[in-house]
Design a protein around this nucleic acid. Structure first.
Lengths: 210, 210, 210, 210
DNA sequence: TATGAATGAGTCTTCATTCAT
DNA sequence: GATGAATGAAGACTCATTCAT
């Protein structure tokens, strides 16, 4: 994202831009989008709040960028490292799911506010923003569907599995898990049990000869 | 809720009170809590906005009542008719799940804004309100856990099932399904496929000898 | 004020009217005119606040009647019993002043809110009402001037006394004393010392051969 | 109060702050505290009413500052120039009283609304503010008591003078005089007669061998 | 006649956004 | 480019007053 060919001033600008997004994320998460003023974001960075408007159009604009950033991280989490076609057997598939699950858990544990941001704050602004969140879900579902379809083709998931419909159910599983982070952020044991239960439910629910 | 022993005036008051809650629900769902003014609610009913304050303390208060009403409906939907201990076999259990699922779908289909209200709007107001929503989830999970524990005891769900942890996963399934109603309110076919896929995932994921 | 020839209903009406004035006085004194609502007055009497408007035009109107009542009491206190021409010597004059002073103190001690009402509340409403309070002062000054003029004529007050101007100064003495009741309602000893000091200042300040 | 070391912007800010206090004083005096809106104050200065809130917390806050300013001026008037211990004889004492009296008259004549502000408006807001006004009186009384006590010690005021109690009576004299300014702002002759009569009453009322 | 439900004018206050310095 | 002073639209809430029952 940062380019070595940029001038020093240009890089500083990019840097501040990123910091504003970070600060906005922090404030929006902590107090909520509607309860946060532009001045709060600026104050957190120690800059004048007029400066904010040199980097972003308006309050809605910064939310957009915050959500973009969070979306990017979530999508990376779900998509990275594990190609849908990597698993060749149910055991490998189970391992792949566990890896993704653990990665998802790790990211959420590190920053539980990400889920609050996309599910609670972004969805209270306007239809367009809510729609973006829905598309994010859709994206997750599509990735998931590919995994499932691959498993069916490979023969270790049951042949009559409705990959597309099931993928939405799987996204629900992820959502349910994520919400537990918000309600009980410190319940590490409960979280691990939830991961296990979810994986078991998922694998047993989709595998062949289940 | 309405009492035949109440005077005519008293009944009219109860009636208007209920209508204000209805109107507030409609406005909050349509434009969002933060984008809705008390005047909007009053205008929808054709009453003066001062009248609103004869029935509710303030904006936060009406939200509370709206959420109470929605919560009540959701809890009724999940809890009514089907006792956790009613199923005696996997087949009966499957039927029970399908009945609950269909009922849930029917309620959501009739009023998809209920989920928007609890998941999107209520969660953007303050910590206390968000917590209430979390408790609603918790309630759903507890009911679900009873169903699961019963199945384990009866022997048609696998003995090593972690009923409590799994119940949270099941709530996620419900949530995921509900969100589809918001994104694609008119996709009846997709909805039916999702119900089927979710039931299949759930049953196969928990049943014995899975 | 109440007339035996009035019908029973009429007398009840007069009675309630008087009670409303009493209640308004109590509320205005306790919370202040601007902080008191018509509903507060009605609630104190246990009547509907619509009823209020059957007895008084509006909020301003009830204040007018409260002030009239208080004015009447104050004027009675100052004027009653002691005719300006009653004193024939300095000693008698001193006794007369002491009697009036004690009477004034007794009335204020019984109801210190009277002074608050006329000096603090009534004067914060509008020019017309403030003017009425000023006229009340004027009335007090005129009575006082008569006492003083009489003393000059009788020869026990100094011949060059400016009765009219001095009368305003004397009203100031009364005011100053009255304010002490509000600030230190329970300082009985201080009050008695103030009465003594005021009388001494007054008598020595106006007597002949001073 | 203004500091030469302040930046230009800082000085302008101080300036506007002072102007807002001035404007608030003018509006509160003219229409009354309760009848004055923040918008009225802003309009008088030709500034947006949002600007007001950059300088003062709320309506109550500006009143506090107005009263502080008026209090300061009144206390300066009463306390400045004339040390309580300056007079060495009754003649000097009389001159001192006349100087203070004239100064007081001059200040009141220039701005008769000061007395309206402290006595009428401030006392109609809440108990705390009323108490501040009482303390202002108390302050005046204490200064006065020092003058009186000094006179007693010097021997030109009578030995049995109750300086403290009498001081409250003297404050009453000042109050009574001040109220005349409000009722008859243009009666210069009456005012001079009142000053004379008050001084005479005061001096004769406290001097030795009276 | 008494009531209190309904009303909306009026006011405070916040905060996103602009722009002169 | 950065700043923060200024702005006013917007919105929550109160309460005196009216009037149907």
């Amino acid at each position: 994202m940062t380019d070595a060919s940029l001038s020093r001033a240009e890089r500083q600008k990019q840097q501040l831009r990123a910091e504003i997004i970070q600060a906005a994320f922090a404030e929006f998460s902590a107090r909520g989008y509607h309860q946060t003023g532009i001045a709060d974001i600026a104050k957190r960075l120690g800059i004048g709040h007029g400066t904010f408007y040199r980097y972003f159009e308006n309050k809605r604009d910064i939310l957009e960028h915050v959500i973009n950033e969070v979306s990017r991280q979530i999508m990376e989490t779900l998509a990275a490292e594990n190609a849908p076609g990597a698993a060749g057997s149910l055991a490998e598939y189970r391992e792949q799911c566990r890896r993704i699950g653990n990665r998802f858990v790790a990211v959420m544990a590190e920053n539980p506010d990400m889920i609050r941001m996309v599910l609670f704050e972004a969805t209270s602004v306007d239809a367009e923003m809510t729609n973006r969140i829905m598309l994010l879900q859709e994206f997750g579902a599509r990735i998931t569907a590919e995994y499932l379809a691959h498993g069916v083709k490979q023969g270790f998931l049951r042949a009559d599995l409705d990959a597309e419909a099931t993928s939405h159910a799987v996204i629900g599983l992820l959502l349910g898990g994520a919400l537990r982070f918000l309600y009980k952020p410190d319940d590490v044991e409960g979280r691990e049990r939830l991961v296990e239960a979810t994986l078991r439910l998922l694998i047993d629910g989709v595998r062949k000869d289940g």
